[in-house]
Nucleic acid binder design. Structure first.
Lengths: 255, 255
DNA sequence: TATAGCCTATGACGTAAGGTAAGGGTCAAG
DNA sequence: CTTGACCCTTACCTTACGTCATAGGCTATA
């Protein structure tokens, strides 16, 4: 009898020694014997009781209630279990609601919100992307690049559509005006509008590093020769768009 | 601007003032202004942020993570939500398991375990029952009655079946032996067996008060003329059984 | 017999998200 | 000037342990 030390019992039942200490202090599971050195020794009876405790614990009963159940034989176990079942079902219902909310949120987010960082480089091989990122960071500063990435990410798919459409309009107009005077009012207007778009892209302030980053990113896409203007790759399209848009701006600055 | 005192904001958002204090200390929601008297004042911006906090809190996000989401715009909300959804689904699965365990336990308990206190008096009108209980308690002591009730409750349906069958056997035998010598070996044997059953019913010790309680309880059932030996009323059957069994015992004691 | 190596004990602090005071200032109205 | 409503900080309480820190106990081997 009384063979089990704390460690033995803890291993047997799969609980920690600390847990046994706690249960002792709470009066939930007292050792049958305390040696002279105050070592705790448990017997078979205690092992059995521990099993019961763990059964109820598994069911998420609070320890207090477990004590009440085990110590008061008149305790209405059936009612306790039924009450507990009801509580669990309520919790489950709540979780269902939460999951529903999350799913709804995810749908709107995915349709409507920013691109993921990795999406930005979608279409570029990972090595190239990391090389470019590192290079860009040393060249124009880590902050600048992070900011630029954040700027790109801040565009929703919807906005992307709008910007793309505007670009197409401008491109079409410019093409149509190709034959005429490059300093005509219409051409100037297109350039002005393009400038507006750049402002929007850069978040209102134009920083050379950022622009260069955008432009080279666009070139990378083209280099990798993977550009097929199908849907589903908004980041790539965005980059190409930026490349075109900024190219003109940078050129006009040089002149 | 900065119109909301702690109380106003707490009412507006449906949280406690303590919660606002806590969020302030955690840096999750700082008031926009502190008056000279260190009063907290919040503005519209803070109200908005609080709404967001509460949104994630509703989804059971820990406050730390909420802070991370709101303060780091690069935080991957989609991934966080998806991870959280997975965690919630796991919790739901666990609850399903728990509910299953409880249901199984309930089935075995209900088939196999003690009767409820009220079941003991099932078949007797409530007034009569309470009158009898009170009377019995004053007559034989509250403790005795509680103990007797506990004894009755400690019989499972299964045990009931066994006992009933034994009683039927004895009764049949006694009926068959009616015509012969009442002091014959067979009759004596039946009486002995009956005594064994009484011992089991009383938990090994025979107390007069307990026996009387059992006997009168059985009589009450008969008085109420409600005894129909259908299934589903084990307590009533038990009482009747005890009545018959104890009646003989008490009579034999008197002689 | 000394010591290394494991075992044990108690006590205390930390966790998450607040609840519940205690003790004491502040503000506006009557 | 008082009163009542409001506000402040500090601090302890909750659950079910995990994780030290400190100190003593037991046993085998050198």
């Amino acid at each position: 009898m009384d063979n089990y030390s704390v460690k033995k019992l803890s291993k047997l039942a799969g609980v920690s020694v600390r847990t046994l200490h706690l249960y002792d202090k709470l009066g939930l599971l007292k050792p049958s014997v305390r040696t002279e050195a105050r070592y705790r020794l448990y017997g078979e009876k205690e092992l059995l009781r521990l099993q019961q405790i763990l059964f109820y614990r598994e069911l998420d009963f609070p320890l207090k209630e477990i004590g009440a159940i085990l110590d008061d034989p008149a305790f209405d176990v059936v009612q306790a279990l039924e009450g507990h079942k009801k509580a669990l079902l309520a919790r489950k219902e709540r979780i269902n609601t939460l999951v529903g909310t999350i799913e709804k949120t995810l749908v709107t987010l995915k349709n409507n919100t920013m691109l993921q960082v990795e999406d930005l480089y979608d279409g570029i091989s990972r090595e190239k992307m990391e090389a470019y990122r590192t290079e860009a960071m040393t060249k124009w500063g880590k902050e600048t690049i992070l900011e630029a990435e954040e700027t790109l990410r801040s565009f929703s798919k919807e906005e992307m559509e709008t910007l793309k459409k505007e670009l197409n309009d401008i491109t079409a107009q410019l093409t149509a005006l190709m034959t005429g005077d490059p300093k005509s009012k219409e051409v100037q207007e297109c350039i002005a509008r393009r400038y507006q778009i750049i402002l929007r892209l850069t978040g209102g302030q134009i920083k050379t590093g950022k622009l260069e980053y955008f432009r080279k990113l666009g070139e990378l896409y083209v280099e990798d020769n993977r550009y097929t203007p199908v849907n589903g790759l908004p980041s790539m399209e965005l980059a190409l768009f930026i490349k075109e848009a900024t190219a003109h701006y940078v050129n006009s600055q040089k002149q």
